[in-house]
Design a protein around this nucleic acid. Structure first.
Lengths: 153, 153
DNA sequence: ATCCTTATTGATAATTTTTGCAATAAAGAC
DNA sequence: GTCTTTATTGCAAAAATTATCAATAAGGAT
């Protein structure tokens, strides 16, 4: 909770307001990790909040770097609390997750930034692919078309 | 066009059908590069095609690796023809694009694949960030909240 | 060219996401 | 505590996206 308190103060400091709705959504995500807008709404509807408010609040918190938005398989957005800088590698077939060597990526990103002069948004990358298990399965069955958006959040 | 012809044959070889709708969409994207579903519909509505068909066809072509889907600022999808393996770096403020050193990324990806055993979908990454110009602007104005999803396609 | 199979489309409805505006309430000043 | 300002919410309607299912047409066989 002290985490949410800190975020609240950060919002207030920027001139935004800390409302019950925002707190409820933050706590839902704090409790569960990854949630889609619909799932968030499920968890907070008891408070009488509207779906529109859920969407707006998620987008608002994301725009203020309090949440990250990750694109999941169905093409729908998923949100999670922004934490320390970290990267994920997710199997798009079975959902298995692996944490990435932050240093390797950071080094590459730094290198790309030097070459291009750009400042990259890469504090939290999620790469999608196939885990070893699912690679094996795919070699047996035909290459069935799947929902395979490469992405990052 | 020979590019589209080749794609058609590839589809047919896999047991799918080459329809006027699919051709129209492919040609629109071949002509214009990056298009959102709504923009694609604008370009092909003269053929009498439905919006639903546009959505389905785009998703179908993407699932078959004929199109790439890139996540643009608003969280909305944009599609483009899948070409040679290449990567982009796009400024989220002014839209300026830079091509990335493919080798640097490929090497990193290969390295990550070795470490994790995953096979990554990374033949076409798009990283978002701030170009040098917009970095300068941002230092002057306050840090206005923006739509800043880090991402890849 | 004609017929057959079935992948694909159109039409429609359902669902999800976004938007506009009046009413509400958070946070600071008193 | 009360008052004021205005960011934020709820409501309702619009827009975007997805799903359902019967009708159509692509592509192979004859």
């Amino acid at each position: 909770m002290s985490c949410i308190l800190r975020l609240s103060q950060s919002l207030r400091a920027r001139g935004y307001r800390v409302t019950p709705q925002r707190l409820a959504i933050l706590e839902a995500l704090h409790h569960e990790g990854h949630l889609s807008p619909a799932q968030v709404y499920e968890r907070v509807r008891q408070t009488g909040m509207t779906e529109a408010t859920v969407y707006r609040t998620l987008e608002f918190l994301r725009a203020n770097n309090i949440l990250f938005a990750a694109q999941r398989e169905g093409g729908h957005l998923t949100y999670e609390l922004a934490g320390a800088s970290h990267h994920h590698l997710i199997c798009r077939t079975c959902g298995a997750q692996v944490d990435l060597e932050a240093e390797a990526l950071q080094r590459l990103i730094a290198c790309l930034e030097q070459q291009s002069g750009y400042r990259l948004d890469a504090s939290h990358l999620t790469l999608f692919g196939l885990c070893p298990n699912c690679q094996a399965c795919n070699e047996i069955r035909d290459p069935e078309p799947r929902d395979t958006r490469d992405q990052v959040s």
